[in-house]
Every structure is written in structure tokens, then in C-alpha cells.
Amino acid sequence: MYACSVRVRHQDVVVVDLPLIVDFYTEREVHGAVMAALTDDCRHLVLSLDHTRDFDSSGLSLLLGLWRHTQDHNITLSLTDLPAFIDKMLRITAADTVLATHPTAQDAIYALNSGTAQYQPMVREA
């Protein structure tokens, strides 16, 4: 899988599968594809990294940039199906303190529906 694909679009939730490679060379393409998947009524974006096998600092930068965009537009962002090496990268860089993670997309959607997901943007200090 070399491109992003929308797995589910239901009401205000969009689930996007990220591609096999998310790195310096693919970051712009992936960013564009994720942004294109967002619709005006999207309130919850779920990114699945289940297929991702190559992920570098540009991939991390992409996720943090998408997080900032979603925060600015009152959209929740959840990451799911994290390979162990990406989960470790998020923990080492402390990105896991701002990026919500769930074992699966279904778990993320359940958290949204049960009200345990973060709905309000985090307040960023100037």
C-alpha cells in the first residue's frame, strides 16, 4: 500500500489508512491526501498506521502538523494500529502526550461515541 486511502467516512468521522512509507520523500503527498480526506463536516479524524513500515522524523512532523491543524479546526485526531517502533518513537519524543492513540480504529470510534475521547482543543500557551 503506497498511498493513503479513506477506509471509512461516516457522519462526522473519517478513518484514513496511512501508506507503507511515511518519510521525507512521501510526507507532502501523504499530507495532501489526508487534507483532501477532511470534509467540512469532519469532527473526528482517525489515522491508522497499520500498513506503515517505514516512518521517520518527517512522519512524526507530519503527525504533529496534522494535530495542530485539527486543534485549530476543532477536530479530534486519533492514531491507531501503531507498529511498535512508531509507538516507541512517540514515547521517546513525548509526542504521545498530545497525540491520542488507540489499539484499533474501532477502539478510537468507540472512545468518540462513549465520550472518553478529547473533544475540545488543547489550550496552547503563547
Rank of each mutant, 00 (worst) to 15 (best):
Q106C: 02
G59D: 09
M89F: 12
A100I: 08
D81P: 00
D54K: 07
E27T: 15
A84S: 10
T52H: 05
V15M: 02
R68H: 14
M1K: 06
M89D: 10
L63T: 10
S58G: 09
H73M: 05
V16A: 08
Q118N: 10
E27I: 12
T80R: 02
Q120F: 08
T116M: 09
T101M: 01
Q71P: 05
F24N: 10
A84V: 06
L63G: 07
R7E: 14
H10V: 09
A126G: 10
M89K: 03
D40N: 12
T52R: 01
V123P: 01
V8W: 01
V15A: 06
P19I: 01
D40G: 13
H51F: 03
L49M: 14
T116I: 15
D12S: 15
K88L: 11
H44A: 11
T93P: 06
P103R: 12
L18M: 11
I109Q: 11
P83E: 05
R53E: 15
A126C: 00
L60R: 03
V22H: 01
Q71R: 15
A100S: 13
Q106G: 09
A36N: 14
M89S: 14
N74V: 09
M122H: 08
S61A: 15
L62I: 08
M1A: 12
Y119R: 15
N74A: 13
L90M: 12
F24G: 06
G59F: 06
L47P: 09
W67S: 00
S57K: 03
G59N: 09
G32Q: 13
F24L: 13
S57R: 05
T26V: 07
A3N: 12
Q11N: 14
Q120A: 15
V30M: 02
D107Y: 02
R124E: 13
S58L: 03
V13D: 04
D17K: 02
I86T: 11
S61E: 10
L99H: 05
L60P: 01
V22I: 14
L20D: 14
D54Y: 12
L38P: 10
T52P: 02
N113P: 00
M35H: 12
L49Q: 03
I86N: 04
R91Y: 01
L90K: 04
T80G: 04
N113K: 12
S114P: 00
H51W: 01
R9M: 08
A33E: 15
D17C: 09
A95R: 03
W67Q: 12
V30D: 07
P19R: 04
L79S: 07
L90A: 07
Q120I: 01
G65Y: 02
D41P: 00
A94H: 13
A111H: 11
D54L: 12
Y110P: 00
R43T: 01
H31K: 14
R43G: 00
Y119N: 10
D23N: 15
V46E: 04
R9N: 11
C42L: 08
H73W: 03
S78L: 00
Q71V: 03
V13F: 05
A117V: 09
G59I: 08
V46N: 05
A100R: 13
L79K: 01
E125H: 13
V46C: 08
M1V: 11
